[in-house]
Amino acid sequence: MVKVEIWGSLRNATDGQSHVEVTGATFKQILDALAQDYPGLRPQIERGVSLAIDGQIYKESWFTPVHPDSEVVLMPLMAGG
């Protein structure tokens, strides 16, 4: 299981929990598990999210490995100018 931090406005979809545990070993598996286990997260995940894994922000890379002890933070999509 991997512990994932959820940003504040999404916590309605996780019964108010700031962290949830899901099964997955890659970026995509984590997102798929979040959408399946917490359907309220699905609209935001479909609009686009990033994952910070051990301090690095990943936008799209499905196969980025995630370890059970990784720090994983769900974040919105990044943009810039």
């Binding site: 931090e5 940003w7 910070a52 051990d54 301090g55 922000i57 720090e71 933070v73 769900l74 974040m75």
Partner: peptide, 17 residues
């Protein structure tokens, strides 16, 4: 005194390297 540094949990979630 208050500066974020390596190991700080950032205000937006991830821990800084």
């Amino acid at each position: 005194k208050n500066a974020a540094r390596k190991g700080t949990k950032s205000s937006y979630g991830p821990t800084f390297d």
